[in-house]
């Protein structure tokens, strides 16, 4: 199926008669990408489900004021990223836990989840990712799984391309070390 252009979605959304159609097109194009982006950050399916709905409700409410000098998908990704970070921060505050403890909690959620069917190596990669600081994990996910360009990640996170590259390299090194400690070599 041919993907509709963002410009067409925005054009249709601007017209009240075709607004609903435009939003349907937007959902068809982005809901899965945004769901997976959120899911990789919060791990639990139910949490991701709540957050992805919140994201698109925000998109619906604010799309009219969206300035077309930014790209639509980076704008949606930015909303999703902010929602994830807010959610994880709230989780830390609610449980009065440190980042390490949250990582342990997410790792336990991953192992116990009925919606994770990865093999041993996939599980280890996820566990390795959970040892990273949130921002490194975010950057790694966007580069590795979403295959976004550094320029796009830069627009989403507001971080310079140079800093993103450094972050990604550090993340890769840490994952490599984690895997070696688990006797997994590539």
């Amino acid at each position: 199926m041919k993907q509709v252009e963002d410009s067409e979605i925005l054009e249709k959304f601007a017209n009240t008669k075709t607004r609903n159609e435009a939003f349907n097109l937007l959902l068809n194009k982005y809901q899965q990408k945004i769901y997976w982006h959120i899911r990789r950050m919060v791990i639990d399916h139910d949490d991701a489900d709540d957050l992805v709905q919140d994201v698109f409700v925000k998109v619906w409410k604010n799309l009219e004021s969206f300035r077309s000098d930014a790209q639509l998908y980076t704008w949606i990704y930015r909303i999703a990223t902010n929602e994830c970070i807010t959610f994880l921060n709230k989780k830390k505050q609610r449980n009065n836990t440190s980042l390490d403890e949250v990582s342990d909690e997410l790792s336990e959620t991953l192992v116990a989840s009925s919606y994770f069917n990865g093999d041993k190596i996939q599980l280890k990669l996820q566990q390795a990712l959970l040892t990273l600081p949130e921002k490194q994990r975010l950057i790694f996910n966007m580069k590795y799984f979403d295959e976004l360009k550094y320029e796009e990640i830069s627009e989403i996170t507001g971080t310079s391309v140079g800093a993103l590259k450094a972050s990604f390299h550090i993340a890769v090194k840490k994952i490599e070390t984690f895997m070696l400690n688990e006797d997994i070599t590539f």
Partner: peptide
């Protein structure tokens, strides 16, 4: 990594 792990295992 990518050659061995194509996806994240979440369903």
């Amino acid at each position: 990594f990518k050659a061995v792990i194509q996806n994240d295992g979440h369903t």
